[in-house]
Amino acid sequence: MPDHDDIPDYHGSSVPASTALPEQGSKLNILLVTRGHPFDRDAFFDVFDSNPDIQYSNVEHPAAQFMYNPEMAQKFDCYVQYDMPGVQFGADGPEYAEPPEFYKQGLRAMGEAGCPLVIMHHAAAAWPAWPEWAEIVGGQFLYTPMQSRGVERPDSGYNIDVSHRVSPVMDHPITRGIEPFDLVDEVYLSEVFEDSVIPLFTSNWTFSRDHFYSAANAVVGGQLNSNTGWDHDDGSNLVGWIKAYKNSPLVYLQFGDGPAAYNNPSYRRILAQAIQWASSAEAKAWVLEVNNT
Rank of each mutant, 00 (worst) to 15 (best):
G177V: 04
T144Y: 03
G150Y: 05
R165G: 11
M170R: 14
V192S: 09
V187T: 06
R149F: 03
E191V: 01
H172R: 08
M170G: 12
I174H: 04
Y143N: 08
R149E: 07
P154R: 00
F141E: 04
P180F: 03
M170T: 15
P154C: 00
G139H: 11
G177W: 06
D155A: 10
S190V: 06
M170P: 04
G139Q: 10
M170S: 12
V137L: 14
L183I: 09
G150W: 02
E179C: 08
G150N: 09
T175W: 02
Q147F: 08
N159K: 02
N159L: 03
V162K: 12
M146K: 09
F193D: 09
D171C: 05
S148N: 11
F141P: 00
V162N: 13
G150A: 08
D171I: 06
F193Y: 15
Q140A: 04
E186C: 05
F193C: 10
S163F: 13
V137W: 15
S148E: 10
E194K: 08
L142D: 03
Q140G: 02
E152V: 05
E186F: 11
F181I: 05
H164P: 01
V169I: 14
P145E: 05
R165C: 10
F193A: 04
N159G: 01
P180T: 02
I178F: 03
H164I: 11
P145T: 04
I178W: 03
P173V: 08
L189A: 04
E194F: 10
S148Y: 13
R153W: 00
L189N: 01
S163M: 12
V151T: 09
V166I: 12
S163N: 14
G150T: 09
S190D: 04
E191K: 05
S167A: 15
R153M: 07
L183T: 07
Y188K: 14
D171K: 13
D155P: 00
P168Y: 08
E191I: 00
S196T: 15
Y158I: 06
E179R: 02
L189W: 01
P168N: 09
V162I: 14
E179L: 06
V192G: 02
S156G: 08
Q147C: 06
M146A: 12
D161C: 10
R165F: 07
D195L: 11
R149G: 02
D155Y: 00
P154W: 00
F181S: 07
G139F: 08
I160H: 01
H172C: 05
